[in-house]
């Protein structure tokens, strides 16, 4: 082989015509990349970070009977001095009155149990869909997504109609003669769990499905070949490999369920206290925007911090090997 032939990878001696073109296209590519990255950042900034800071600002203010109903953070006095008034009372207050702690813990409890229920119900569903034939798979996925096409509120009202003392289910059971007295279902913890699991199940099933569908079926064959029975294969191969799907689905259920307002309000009535309801009451009934904002901020941190810890832990696990 002749070694004189030009190697295209060699740094060319001096900027040739082709080299210039390549450089321009590379630059274009880089700026394109920047654009692509900038869009989600801008989105986060405008629709998440900015509102967050506004809420944070309100949480450091004092309630006023005015519009807006809170004091300003910055004040320009007549001498031209800027004063900043930060009131931490709101944060102290939510720790003093145990209503907030209690409802917060209750919210976490309800959303944790709901998440586990969603997982227990959703995993077999996702697994079943992955295992079914091509046609059935499409239909089943459709069936999972279909409820999204009707209003969420409407579906919750429908559950009220089903669960009420004089609702469809009780009427049916009484008319068959299984029960004499209606069973109390509406305005109980049960109704709230049912509502949350029903509403958030697709958020568990879809990421699990996406995860399980990607799993290489030859891994199951390899495990069977090495003597593992179907149950063993599930616990040693399928389950560990679906952890990312489980985590994604659980977060998608847990986070919105914790702050859920509509379901505890409509299906739980006054009996089930969740932090979303407390927030609503502070804003609309007590008109105490600063305390409401402080509750919102506290909620955010109490949710985000454990997640960040979990992610760090995962990253460390991955590095360990």
């Amino acid at each position: 082989m002749s070694s004189v032939a030009a190697d295209p990878m060699d740094p060319a001696p001096g900027p040739t015509q082709a080299g210039l073109g390549a450089r321009i296209s590379r630059q274009l590519q880089a700026s394109w990349k920047l654009c692509v990255i900038a869009v989600p950042y801008a989105w986060m900034l405008i629709f998440f970070l900015l509102p967050f800071f506004i809420v944070f600002k309100i949480s450091l203010a004092e309630p006023l009977i005015a519009a807006p109903p809170f004091s300003a953070l910055f004040d320009l006095t007549e001498e031209g001095i800027v004063t900043i008034r930060i009131i931490l009372d709101n944060f102290l207050f939510i720790f003093e009155d145990d209503l907030y702690i209690r409802t917060y813990l209750n919210s976490v409890k309800i959303s944790t149990i709901s998440t586990i229920l969603c997982l227990l119900v959703g995993y077999p569903i996702a697994y079943g869909i992955v295992r079914s034939g091509e046609m059935a798979r499409k239909l089943l996925l459709m069936a999972i997504i279909l409820p999204f096409w009707t209003s969420f509120l409407l579906r919750v009202y429908a559950w009220m109609g089903l669960l009420a003392d004089k609702g469809t289910i009780n009427n049916l059971l009484i008319s068959i003669g299984i029960i004499d007295e209606p069973i109390r279902m509406l305005y109980t913890d049960f109704a709230v769990y049912l509502g949350i699991v029903y509403t958030y199940l697709p958020f568990m099933v879809l990421p699990l499905y996406a995860n399980l569908e990607k799993l290489d079926s030859s891994l199951n064959e390899a495990a069977a070949d090495l003597g593992a029975k179907p149950i063993g294969i599930f616990f040693t191969v399928t389950l560990p490999l679906s952890i990312p799907g489980i985590v994604a689905g659980s977060l998608l259920v847990f986070i919105p369920a914790t702050g859920e307002y509509v379901i505890p309000d409509l299906l739980g009535g006054g009996n089930v206290q969740m932090i979303g309801r407390v927030l609503y009451n502070e804003f609309h009934q007590n008109k105490d925007w600063p305390v409401a904002s402080a509750v919102a901020i506290a909620l955010l941190f109490l949710l985000v911090v454990p997640m960040m810890i979990y992610q760090r832990y995962q990253a460390k696990e991955a590095e360990k090997v």
């Binding site: 064959e221 390899a222 070949d225």
Partner: peptide, 11 residues
């Protein structure tokens, strides 16, 4: 026991 063409190692 089989050795798979695609290896099928447990990732």
């Amino acid at each position: 026991n089989m050795m798979f063409q695609s290896y099928a190692l447990f990732p």
